[in-house]
């Protein structure tokens, strides 16, 4: 092999650079997202009423699907009342229903979205509520 020394050194540098991020972050845990549910609006509700439109587990996994369905239904079909699994009715509106309780976009939406590095474009048009925490 010609220039074996140079090649090996080159490889070593390449390997070092390519794996740097892994070694650099090794052993460091990034804080897990912790969305907050303690806005004044939610705390005001009686304990048994502190429920989202659907159960927590469903919302956690499916809120993006639910919101997409709401959007299409409201904008395109003018059908805007949501009947949840308990038969309760809600006005399908991100700005006027979801965010009325979750008046803490930064500590609620952004908390996980930033962690996952997703950037939903909802807020390019929809107006986020005034940030409230309790």
């Amino acid at each position: 092999m010609y220039n074996a020394g140079k090649i090996l050194i080159g490889l070593a540098i390449f390997f070092g650079l390519a794996t740097f991020p892994f070694f650099y972050n090794m052993g460091k845990a990034v804080a897990k997202p912790d969305p907050k549910l303690d806005t004044p609006e939610i705390m005001k509700l009686a304990k048994q009423d502190r429920k989202c439109v659907e159960p927590k587990e469903f919302m956690r996994a499916e809120h993006m699907q639910l919101l997409n369905n709401w959007r299409d239904s409201v904008v395109r079909d003018n059908v805007r009342v949501y009947v949840n699994s308990e038969g309760k009715k809600f006005d399908m509106s991100l700005q006027n229903t979801c965010m009325r309780c979750h008046s803490n976009k930064k500590k609620f939406c952004d908390e996980c979205h930033n962690y996952m590095a997703v950037k939903p474009y909802c807020w390019d048009c929809h107006i986020a509520p005034k940030e409230k925490e309790s």
Binding site: N69, V81, N84
Partner: peptide, 10 residues
Amino acid sequence: ASQMEPNPEG
């Protein structure tokens, strides 16, 4: 059928 309906006041 079960989950969405138009606003009755509309």
